[in-house]
Amino acid sequence: MTATILRRLAQSVPTLFIVVTLSFFLVRLAPGGPFDLERPLPAAAMENLRRVYGLDQPLLVQYGRYLAALARGDLGPSFSVRDLSVAELFARGLPVSMTLGGLALLLALGLGTALGALSALRRGSWLDHAVTTLGTFALTVPGFVVAPLLQIAFGLTLRWLPVGGWDGGSPRHLVLPVVTLALPQVAVIARLARAGLAEVFERPHWRTLRGLGLPPRILALHALRGAALPVVSYLGPAAAGLLTGSVVVETVFGLPGVGRYFVDGAINRDYTLVLGTVVLIAVFVLVLNLVADLACALIDPRLRDPG
């Protein structure tokens, strides 16, 4: 197991390197620079700024310096937010985004599995059709439509919940953003859980278990564990979906998370902030994929490394 983890971690270094390299050069291909304003700065001031941030060096030198700093864990200073490093920005925003994403993931897993199980048990019933139809809606209607609708319904009309803001992460402020973020993932997980269970019910071993006259509680354990694999494998992609979703959700609900840095950084040509966000997301997705694979091996002995 340990050897597997180490091997997988070693394998993710080249992936990360490729992601960083591509992003580094892509973001510089975009026209303009971090210090371009409506009214251009005096040439001397511009020159000064470029020198301070190392932008006067040849591109390859900048690239080499960025990689060297990154290897030390230094994401560099932000170009657009004065006096703060990218790492400091993340330190402020990450708790917000992690709370949001973590809760959304839990909600999606719980609700998605429950809905999927209900549809699988009542295949072809109105409930099954309802879950499928609503799931399609949840998947196809984008977050920037769902969020305002929820704000109008629960914030402005019913006045049950606030329409935005963080307020130190109070539960009332979390409900709407978490629901918005989780909805598409609930739909995917419900679909995966339903398919996984339906597959278990078709397997010969399911007939064996039923033939043993086991109580529903034990049957449920066997069914859910059999259906867990596709759901758990989806954790990596789900994490990526939550991250991109958080860009919209944090903007619409005005939350101080890291998702909006991605957009702000890109618009302001804040090279280090954009690259820092890319590194953050890439590490996050890589780690979650690894966790998902390890969890799969825990569930299914056939996936365990023989070594």
Binding site: R203, P204, T208, L214, H222, R225, D300, P301
Partner: peptide
Amino acid sequence: TLDRIRGARIGLVFQEPMTALDPLF
């Protein structure tokens, strides 16, 4: 009621030895 009989008073052995057991336990 049926569950009190199957597995207890009537045992069942199926063909597919590859797939008739739960692979996860």
